[in-house]
Structures are given as C-alpha cells and as structure tokens.
Design a protein around this nucleic acid. Sequence first.
RNA 1: GGCGCGGUAGCCAAGUGGUAAGGCCGAGGUCUGCAAAACCUCUAUCGUGAGUUCGAUUCUCACCCGCGCCUCCA
Length: 495
Amino acid sequence: MPLRLYNTLGNKVEEFAPSDDNLVRMYCCGPTVYDYGHIGNFRTFVAVDVLRRHLLQSGRKLRHVMNITDVDDRIIERSAAQHITVRQYTEKFEQAFFDDMALLAIHKPEVIARATDNIPEMARLIEGLAQKGIAYRADDGSYYFRIARFPGYGKLSRKDLAHIEDGARVDSDRFDKEEIRDFALWKAPKPGEARWQTEIGEGRPGWHIECSAMAMKYLGPSFDLHAGGEDLMFPHHENEIAQSEAFTGQTFARFWFHVRFLLVEGQKMSKSVGNFFTVRDLVLKGHKPSSLRFLLAGAPYRKQLNFTFDGLKSASSSVERLRNFKLRLEAPLPPGRNPAMQQLAQDTQRLMAAALDDDLNAAEFSAAIFEMVRQANTAADSGQLFAEDAPPLLAALAQFDHIFDVMEDRDAAFTARVVEWARRERPDVEISEAALQLAASASVGDGEIEKLVAEHVAARKARNFFRSDAIRNELASRNIVLENMKDGTVRWRRK
RNA sequence: GGCGCGGUAGCCAAGUGGUAAGGCCGAGGUCUGCAAAACCUCUAUCGUGAGUUCGAUUCUCACCCGCGCCUCCA
C-alpha cells in the first residue's frame, strides 16, 4: 500500500514516493543549540522520527539530513556575555540535544550538519544569487534577497505579498533593504561579534541560507521531502525555497511536512506563562522518558497536541499495559496453537501498516495494538492462548515498537543520568521523590532482587504472609513489583 | 485585518452518508491469603441553528467558542 502524506505545498494529502529508486532523501530543520530543548521542539523531532521509522519499515532506503543551527543572534549574544567562542558555547547544548534525543528514542539522521561547518557553501550560494541579480549587497557588506525577482514567492505559505508589506514590523535592517520584505542572506559583522571570512566578505550567515546550502549539498538541488515545525513555514521555509529555486531553477523539495505546535495545558508554551518545560524538567519531576515518547508519538502530527500532566500519566499507564502484555507472552504457555490468535496477529499487523500509510495515523496505529492486547489477554485468561501463538503476537508487538519504541525499559537508567546531570549542573533545581526513587532503582541489581524474591517465595510457602508481604513492600518501595501467579511462581518487574 | 486548524463520553482521541475505534481515570464484578496483573459489565446521539438527502456526527451555509501562523518561537 502506498504511503499518503499531507503536503503543505498544495495543502492536500498526496501519495508519497521517492523520485529516485527507493531512496528517500529528506531534510529536517534541526535545533538551534542556544539552550536545552523543550518538549515542543521534541514533538517535531519525534514526529519526524515516526516518519523515518515508517519509511524504513516500509522497505525504503533513507538519506535524512538534519542541520544544527549553531550560530544565531541568541548564541552570539550569550557566548559574548560569557566571553567564550560560539563553538564553546554551543557544544554543550549540542551534546545535550543528542542526549535528549536518546532519552526520547529518536534515531539519529544519516547526516547531521552544523551551520558553522558549512559557511563556504553558503557564501558560494549567495555569490551565485548575486551574479544572477537576485541578491544584492548593501553598503555595510550585508547581502539581501530581492524578493521581487522571485515570482513564486509565497507559494508555500500562500501569503499575499501586499499584506506582508502592510503588516511587517519595521526592523533595524530596513534602511539597507530595497524593500521591507527582502530578507538577509548574509549579515555584515558588528563590533565584537563572531564572524567568518569568506569570498563574499566578512560576516555571518542569515538564518535561512544554511538550510538551502546544506540541503542541496547533501541531497542535491531537488529532493523528496522537507520537514519542520509549523512556525517555520513562514518565513523560514518560504525563504529557503526562494533562495534555492532562484539559484538552481529546479524544484527544491517536492513534499513539505509540517508538524503542528504543542500546547501545554491548553496554552502556548512560554516562559512567562510558566508552562515551559524541557525534557529534563519532566524527568526530574519523576515522569518517565517512555511516557513522553508515547504521548508525543501517539498524537497525530497535524493536530495541535495539548500536553497535560494527566495525559503524561495516562501514557505511562498505557506503556505499562503493553510491557505487562509482553511479559505475559514471554512467560511459559501451554503447548499448542489457537488459529484465532494467529489470525489476530496477522490482522493487527495489516491494520498498523495501513494506519501509518494513511498520513501517519498514529491513533489508529496504536488502537490496533491495544485491540490485539485485549483479545489476546482474554484468550489467555480463558486458557485459549498457547505457546505457538506467542511468536506471531510478539511479531506484531515488535512491529508496533519499531515505531513507538517504548517496550524496552530504559527509564530508570535515563532518569539516573538526568538526576546526576541536575546535581552537577543545576543544583538549584528541585528533584522529585519519584525521580530519585526511579533513578535509585537503576542500580538495584537483578541478583539482589532475585534473592529477596526467593525469600518471599519461601515465606509464602510457609504461609508466613507477614514476612512475604514485608518483602513485597520493601521491593515496592524500590520500584520493583512482585506478582504472585496462580501456579505459585512469582514474576517481578520494574515499575 | 489576512491565512489556516479544531470543537466527539470525566480526560486524551480515531472515524464514517446508514444510528460512534482505542487509551486513561472511575464504579461494580471475576480471579486471589492479601496485593499485582488480567478479564467482564457500566458511562456519548458527535458545539448551535438551518439546508441537501430516504437517512448526517460525517456534505453545504450561518453563528458561537477555542487555537495557531502572519515577529530568526519546533
């Protein structure tokens, strides 16, 4: 079944296929590494991760490029304030970004490109535009893009150019521009600012040029898909199109994939409202990374996602349910097979694939797996689930997890890492009891648990329930759950 | 003002011209020494009004409400 995706360019769902063999070439606007990433940033990256995982699972080859914006006004300002170089300032946040990606199980793109590593490419692009008369140099050495020379301007965001002029706030560069709507390709250096020496002079790149230069460097003048947050549609992506297409005369990206904003408790996230959260903030409050991953991955990427703490708790319960189901399948089952279960697993796999092919319908995708879980649990409760049924059901579960990636429990270890980071770097930030407990459980060894479990079993056998319950409570306080099975055996798991 | 999105059970949320997936929470029940897990049962006529239609939550129009972009914020 073909993949159908919503294309912002044209505003409709279209069939998506790579133009070149089976190789999908895609570009995703990455982070500006001026601070720790917030959950809104990661909503976009999780959505793109779901897309990339689905493409791979559908048998596509992938060349996915993501930029790291490691120079912009904020970075220049802050690094100057701390009297360190731009690179010294950004490397810490770049590393933090990758750590947070790992926390949320976001796979790394094939190519990660830093803006500051590609300045010559940008300069060449600007020079080419200048030679065509599309870019012009201002008196101070800055370069601007002459929008009047690019007739297609506004096709992505469907802007009425007249209104841009009307509504545009007058910015400080305006006296150098021929027209207010023209945008900066290259900024002449100001005293004390970071600068690069290039063939078009000294200075630093404008924001948009990096993506044009790097996308074309790694993917060619024309490629399959370009992704980013919805706010980037205008002006960033519009300007990327203008720069690139004016330069090459070819279509820049065929598909534009935009992820809608995340709201927090019904409101746009902002520091002044006090509803601004980084991934680390949530972990330190005791929420599991897998809960956040589940929440973000499960929401349709084209709808506003209202992030709430209730929702996060709900996600946590859902993940626990799935993990419990997997444990049940991995435990010994009576010999035999149930054709209905075989059929169920097969149907579920088909439904999941179809759901994602339908513009990444994550809600239907996860509904399919939960339906399977319920039916299989029902069968198991009535003794109708057998050893030979486990592999196909596990295969369906694996197909689910190839996309969501929440089954493996890395929560305690990740939390321990974040707690350690907070103690080192952010001693002022409060660490919740829940986070501490979860982090501590990471260092409780299996051997130690097994020993207590054995003691618990012995006590129960002797009908010393006082003792056995005490052990169970003791383990519970360390985030270990004991479950006494019907046959007298005990199963334990980390909560 | 321009452009766009959404209003479905307590919360999150899918979906279809023929009387509503899934998850979470809650209540009751089964199982159980107690827990845990799991299962079963219960909880919606789909923002309001009008129109099209044999029939609309799903199509059209109007209205109300919420939200986003139009500011180098994902």
